[in-house]
Design a protein around this nucleic acid. Structure first.
Length: 267
DNA sequence: AAACAGGCCTAAA
DNA sequence: TTTAGGCCTGTT
């Protein structure tokens, strides 16, 4: 069914889907996005300034997924300073998606030293090969494969997805999660720093990937992933003593604004 | 053709 | 504690 979700002023689907936090939403020639959340394929579009979603998912899922309970305008008002205010204005409409924790973990392992189009390709092949097929309209979609499924494979089995040296990391992570050694759900309720520490025990997960996982998959909005773009943006626009903690409990949103701005200007 | 991509790991100071 | 080189693959 098709539901009206919210106004396009509080959710900009292009910015939100293209800002680099997710890899499974694709745009058609009319600006309509399709993707899969959990086991639900969905279609998201803008009609007369409103966001509409077509899917079989329970309608409550979307407000959670898009973090609509949070007043981003109010949160963003705390982001001060010329440069950060510029970034904030430019990125207004971005929402931090509450993605599945395992999907986020796996996706950001794949993201290392890769560009977005290649990341998306690898993720797509991973889903087609090892996910469950879903039908929705004319097209076929696939779920993101579970950690349990991948834990039974070897790195060589992942050769067809062409993820290179990251295949070994994916398998390590899948085994850690499937065995219960890494309890992703549990990490949602513990301290942000503790969650990072736990994630970093897995081979292939360093500081940057761990921060992406806690921000996009474990609801720790104070996380502040720093990649090469962020490093440059911070160096050029913030004092050397700048500490992300000064941005408060939604520092991760500020990070996305800065990242999105830096990347848009840099290309 | 060779360098570089939204890191991470290991070895070596 | 910081730094360099290697790593798969694809693109420029």
């Amino acid at each position: 069914m098709k539901i009206k979700l919210c106004g396009a002023d509080i959710l900009d689907i292009e910015k939100t889907f293209e800002c680099g936090q997710c890899f499974r939403w694709n745009c058609d020639e009319n600006g309509v996005y399709t993707g899969v959340v959990g086991e639900y394929p969905a279609r998201v579009e803008v009609i007369d300034g409103e966001i509409y979603i077509t899917s079989d998912a329970p309608s409550t899922l979307w407000s959670e997924y898009f973090d609509l309970e949070t007043d981003y305008a109010a949160v963003s008002a705390e982001f001060t300073g010329d440069y950060l205010e510029t970034c904030t204005q430019y990125g207004m409409g971005i929402r931090i998606l509450k993605q599945d924790s395992w999907e986020a973990l796996c996706s950001f392992i794949i993201s290392q030293c890769n560009n977005i189009s290649r990341i998306k390709g690898i993720v797509e092949r991973l889903c087609e090969l090892f996910g469950e097929k879903l039908s929705f309209g004319e097209t076929e979609y696939y779920t993101f494969p579970t950690a349990e499924r991948l834990s039974k494979l070897s790195a060589e089995d992942l050769a067809p997805i062409r993820s290179g040296y990251r295949a070994e990391y994916i398998i390590c992570a899948a085994r850690a999660v499937a065995s219960g050694e890494l309890d992703l759900e549990g990490l949602k309720s513990c301290d942000y720093r503790e969650a990072i520490k736990a994630l970093r025990t897995v081979r292939g997960i360093g500081e940057k990937v761990a921060n992406c996982v806690v921000l996009f998959g474990l609801n720790h909005m104070e996380a502040f992933p720093i990649d090469v773009w962020m490093k440059r943006a911070l160096k050029e626009n913030f004092p050397p003593e700048f500490n992300p903690e000064s941005l408060g409990s939604y520092a991760g949103l500020a990070q996305q604004y800065i990242f999105y701005y830096a990347r848009s200007m840099g290309k």
